[in-house]
């Protein structure tokens, strides 16, 4: 099946599914740009706390960032194993990617709970509204990726993944790495740069 797909005639001479994935990722950039820009527009505009400096925990989130970077490495290995037709390695690396993704989500659940207990809510102030919307949608992307990874691992365990179907794993990889680069941007803007924003007194003038 994949064999015929490779020889399919297309207007671009390129695989349709792969082109679809890249077009989707390009459009998903716009989706996240809207949420990120909204966060930046309302940065430092909250009239009441909690403010980022009160609750953002940069060291802990640096660890979860490492976990997500590590998962991208595992994803790359899953694709390499698929090209090498090594069934155990395919399933192993796919599951490793899924588990690392799940750990990242675990960090996010703990973070959201902590923030909620400290008074940050979706409707409490502009920081809460923009923060939860942006990181929540990213978390949803990661969750979707985990489900996709587990499904592919099951398909792999049945011996249906190999060099002929490498495109299936490659498309999953493209999606997963995209989620990773979105996090690179979010981590920089919301944590490294925005994580130390204080309340109106400290930002007055801006």
């Amino acid at each position: 099946m994949a064999h015929t797909a490779e020889h399919e005639y297309t207007t671009t001479g390129l695989n349709h599914r792969k082109m679809l994935m890249w077009v989707f990722l390009g459009s998903d950039c716009l989706f996240f740009a809207a949420l990120i820009a909204t966060y930046m527009v309302y940065r430092g505009q909250s009239l009441v706390g909690p403010y980022p400096v009160d609750i953002i925990n940069v060291p802990v989130t640096t660890i979860s960032t490492f976990v997500l970077l590590m998962s991208s490495f595992a994803m790359v290995q899953a694709l390499a194993s698929t090209h090498a037709n090594n069934k155990n390695a395919i399933v192993g690396w796919l599951m490793a990617t899924a588990i690392l993704g799940a750990i990242f989500i675990g960090f996010q659940i703990v973070e959201f709970n902590t923030f909620k207990n400290e008074g940050l809510t979706l409707g409490g102030n502009l920081f809460g509204a923009t923060f939860f919307t942006l990181t929540g949608f990213h978390g949803a992307h990661v969750t979707l990726g985990i489900i996709w990874l587990v499904i592919m691992a099951i398909v792999g365990a049945k011996g249906r993944l190999g060099p002929d179907t490498a495109l299936d794993v490659e498309l999953l990889g493209l999606y997963w790495h995209f989620v990773d680069i979105v996090w690179i941007v979010i981590f920089t803007l919301l944590y490294l740069i925005g994580g130390f924003d204080a309340g109106p007194a400290a930002l007055s003038g801006g």
């Binding site: 082109m19 890249w22 077009v23 950039c29 716009l30």
Partner: peptide, 18 residues
């Protein structure tokens, strides 16, 4: 290169919108 072009176009548009 076409894959990259499609993605970078989306990224550039996203940047401009932001």
């Amino acid at each position: 290169r076409l894959f990259g072009t499609v993605f970078i176009a989306g990224l550039a548009l996203a940047f401009i919108v932001g």
